[in-house]
Amino acid sequence: VKIQTTSINKHQTKSAHFQKMQRISQFVVIAGFLILTSYISITGSEIGREKGDHLIESVLSSTSTNSYFAGKMLGVLFLLIFQVMIYALLIGIANIVLPMIHQKALINLDFFKGISINYIVLTTLFMVVAVILYILLAAIIASFVSRIEDISQATSSVASLILIPYVIGLIASLRPEIGFIKVFSYIPFASQSIMPVRIATGTVSYTQGWVSLFISVLTLVPLFFIAGFIYKKNIFKYSNHSLLYNLLH
């Protein structure tokens, strides 16, 4: 006999939905940290190695700097999209195959029942915009690299910045109303880890979340042109000085 339990307590149901959203936000913070760390390393290594090996002269002899930079950024973004699609496909296959062999499904889709589509879309867009922002920042730092030995320093300096919103995002899941957390939830490079958590705890509305995302998108556009300008300006500059010296001069 199949027995179905239905809750008639609206407040209890709403609380359960917020708890699910908090779990999703915590997963996004951790997954976003891992993804950003990986793609910052990829971007910095690609740009730094080409310049350090003096391969960029032959590449740019047949194409413009702006087109090459835009193509490289799109290539990294397409790689990210392809990777996410592969993961989604593998999870989908696992969810179909595992019940057939009398095993528990990898992801219980019932968990997502009652969670707003608005929240899922907003959280996904936050992560996409954040990845692009950090890729552009990594491209800017890597443009100053003249030696292969400085590639790891360039990528680690950008990756270390991710630790700040990562830690704040974990704190926000416990104390979302702290003053500095409110401020950081609207700051690009940090909002992707903090604003979804604040929405999940019910301390801010979806409207405020979309405002925070809009601020990040507005930052994304000029940062792309700034990154392209810095890349074009420094791509043929070679120096025996350290990365820190090149950044300051």
Rank of each mutant, 00 (worst) to 15 (best):
Q4D: 12
Q4Y: 09
T5K: 03
H17K: 04
Q19N: 11
K20I: 12
M21N: 11
R23T: 12
G32V: 11
L34T: 15
L36S: 14
Y39M: 04
S41W: 11
I47H: 12
R49D: 04
E50R: 07
E50P: 02
K51C: 03
H54R: 13
L55Q: 14
I56G: 06
S58P: 00
L60K: 11
T63D: 03
T63W: 01
N66D: 14
S67V: 11
Y68P: 03
G71T: 07
Q83V: 06
V84T: 14
A88P: 01
A94W: 03
A94N: 03
N95S: 04
L98D: 04
P99V: 10
M100P: 01
A105F: 00
F111K: 01
S116E: 05
L122V: 12
T123D: 09
F126L: 02
V131E: 09
A142T: 09
F144R: 04
S146C: 04
I148Q: 09
E149F: 02
A154W: 04
L161G: 15
P165S: 11
Y166W: 13
Y166H: 13
A172W: 11
S173N: 13
F180T: 04
F180G: 02
F184W: 04
Y186D: 10
A190T: 15
S193W: 15
P196D: 10
A200V: 13
S205E: 10
T207E: 03
V211E: 10
I215G: 12
V221W: 01
F225C: 04
N234C: 01
I235M: 02
K237C: 00
N240W: 00
N246H: 09
L248D: 00
